[in-house]
Computed example of a mutant assay.
Amino acid sequence: MKSNSLKDLGALRDAMRAAQAEAAAARAREAAEAARRERERHAFAHAVGPVTPMKAPRRAERTAPLPTPEPRQRELDEQAALREALSDEVDVETLLLTDDGLSFRRPDVGPDVLNKLRRGQWAIQGQLDLHGKRRDEAREALSSFIRQAHQQGRRCVRVVHGKGHGSPGKTPVLKSKVQRWLAQRREVMAFAQAPGPQGGAGALVVLLASK
């Protein structure tokens, strides 16, 4: 038993010595690496010479607010979609009421609402004048105007299409087209010919859906 214990102690002592030797070798390698890096740093400093740190450049302070980002590409896409969506060929005559002003209302809009439009009892909150515009220009302008007015929460607007005095045959070219276009807009709940003080036969009073 005593012989075995001495052997175990000897093995433990040898393991401890091996571990100590390995630790000392590791410390020596670390010291050698640190010395190498220090030599390289001194060699670089000697080769480059004295170095003066550069001063940080002065930056102008921004005083004007940044412009609000505008979704221009989305607006262009929407305009292109609107040009395709509003057709001149859509037959909306069956939706127009057969009165002198060829009024229009959705099925869920009561006749009393339309009567108020005819009599000018709704406050006009915006106006679009289409005088002098070609067909495509007028269609795009009308689409943008209706969309923006609805987004702004406006309920009643006026669209001036003219009486056609300057058109061939003295007929209002845009009038029937504007009626078709308006009837295709989901925001439009009703429209009627404007009363005399608000433009008469040369304009329409348009009721928009609530936002």
Rank of each mutant, 00 (worst) to 15 (best):
M54F: 15
G126Q: 00
R118C: 08
M1G: 15
A141T: 08
T68P: 11
A26H: 13
F44L: 15
P71L: 06
Q198S: 09
G110D: 15
K7Q: 11
H46D: 10
K175R: 10
K211Q: 14
F44N: 15
V113Y: 01
D129M: 05
Q148K: 11
R37T: 07
R186Q: 13
R27F: 04
R62P: 08
R139T: 02
K133A: 08
A23E: 04
D99H: 01
A201H: 12
R59G: 02
P50L: 06
R83F: 10
A138C: 01
R139L: 05
S210K: 08
R36I: 09
R119A: 14
L174R: 00
K175P: 02
G110I: 03
L9D: 14
D91H: 11
T171S: 04
R118G: 07
G166R: 02
R158D: 05
A56G: 05
G202K: 03
A15C: 09
V157H: 00
I146A: 00
R74I: 03
D100Q: 09
L9V: 15
E140V: 13
A45D: 09
A26P: 07
R186L: 07
F44W: 12
Q152R: 12
A21M: 03
A190M: 02
S87F: 09
A209L: 07
H46C: 10
P107E: 14
E78N: 12
E30Q: 10
G101T: 03
D8M: 13
A35T: 09
E140F: 03
S5R: 13
L182F: 06
Q151S: 04
I146M: 00
G162R: 00
R135K: 09
L174P: 00
L117M: 01
R134N: 07
Q152H: 12
L96S: 02
A149C: 05
L82N: 13
V206T: 03
R186D: 10
S167L: 11
R27Y: 03
M16D: 11
P195R: 06
K211R: 13
S3V: 15
